[in-house]
Design a protein around this nucleic acid. Structure first.
Lengths: 203, 203
DNA sequence: ATTAAAGTATACCGATCGGTATAGTTACAA
DNA sequence: TTGTAACTATACCGATCGGTATACTTTAAT
């Protein structure tokens, strides 16, 4: 509830970074939004880059905690959870403040792989995919990591699709596709040997 | 081959916009890369925004022409073309200059839907999806637009995934998922009634 | 009451931003 | 040869960028 100054600055910065973009947000705007001064900002964060990293790290943690909570609140079984992911994504997309994925956006604004901002963003999806892979394994997928990657492609695609054009039904379509992939990934499915593949053959 | 000054400026700007980001690229850098002066730049483009729009419009046209050519060179039947899309994407991702999708990146840098840059970026995926939907219809999909949207989600997801972490096999996984979705979308498939669904029921 | 820390206020720094004004070149057509 | 259009060179504009210096005020513990 009551935020100390450092948290207040970070929160103001986070909202601006996410809603306007990182490069588009100047420190003066952050300072004004947090009702403080540059001197205080630079007391807690050594540079704007520092603040950007802090924003992404906190967002990583907060978002994943919130997300797992949401999924667990909607479903009990691994399969149901895998599907519920798309409902949570769909609801998240529907809020008017939605501006896409902060990490995808950050990686787009800082395109070089070596950039720290880019790297922290990449870590988020590592974590996220591991979460999906765990569910896929509990579910009994014959190749949980492959299924997790495929589902995460649908999720990321749905997010950027919705970011480009709102309310185009990306989450619902992604869920329908996910259902097909999930059921097709069960170990004891009949005659799916030609549909899925655990190797990386060339066409 | 021989570019006039306007084209030269646009090309220099395009390379910088794509490789470094739009906001990160100043007009001075563009002018230097094109070996010209600001005066000439502002003779052909009324503002930087103007140049950004020109960049995206040209990229839209060029990329789609190139892409359709590549696909047609790899496959003949509609189904094979739908799958070849993922091979082309995979090869495109492999080039070292790859920095993700210029339109996704632009939409991330200019997050507001009303922004002209955002809108032009959104148009690209409209065109792209229409192309896929045409193929899906020729293929005989029971719901070409749904299949097209699902495949485009896989494609966009693969692109941003590869942008975040290179060489993680996104294109191959996307292709495998696509194969399942494509075959499951055929009108006359046996016992797929529980796998695919043309309505939008809630879980 | 004294002190130290936290925070504010404000002015400033050099650099860069997008964009323009003015003058000087080059090249080519009439 | 004169004019004209394309292009260059350079200096400049106000605004904003990220970041700092200095001085002042509040708060709370000793």
């Amino acid at each position: 509830m009551s935020l100390n100054l450092q948290e207040k600055i970070l929160q103001a910065a986070s909202e601006l970074f996410y809603s306007q973009g990182i490069r588009a947000t100047g420190v003066d705007a952050i300072v004004k939004a947090a009702s403080t001064t540059k001197m205080s900002l630079y007391k807690y964060f050594s540079s704007k880059d520092d603040l950007v990293i802090a924003f992404l790290r906190k967002r990583d943690e907060d978002f994943r905690v919130w997300f797992v909570d949401q999924v667990n609140g909607k479903a009990d079984t691994p399969k149901a959870k895998l599907l519920a992911i798309f409902d949570v994504i769909g609801e998240w997309m529907a809020v008017p403040e939605f501006r896409g994925c902060a990490f995808i956006n950050a990686a787009a604004e800082f395109p070089l792989e070596g950039n720290p901002v880019h790297q922290v963003s990449a870590e988020f999806y590592d974590h996220f995919r591991n979460y999906i892979a765990d569910l896929a394994e509990q579910y009994g997928s014959k190749s949980p990591k492959n299924l997790a990657l495929q589902l995460s492609l649908l999720i990321e695609g749905a997010i950027v699709s919705e970011q480009m054009k709102r309310h185009s039904g990306s989450a619902e379509q992604a869920k329908q596709a996910a259902l097909v992939l999930i059921e097709g990934s069960l170990s004891d499915m009949p005659d799916t040997s030609l549909l899925t593949d655990n190797s990386e053959e060339e066409q």
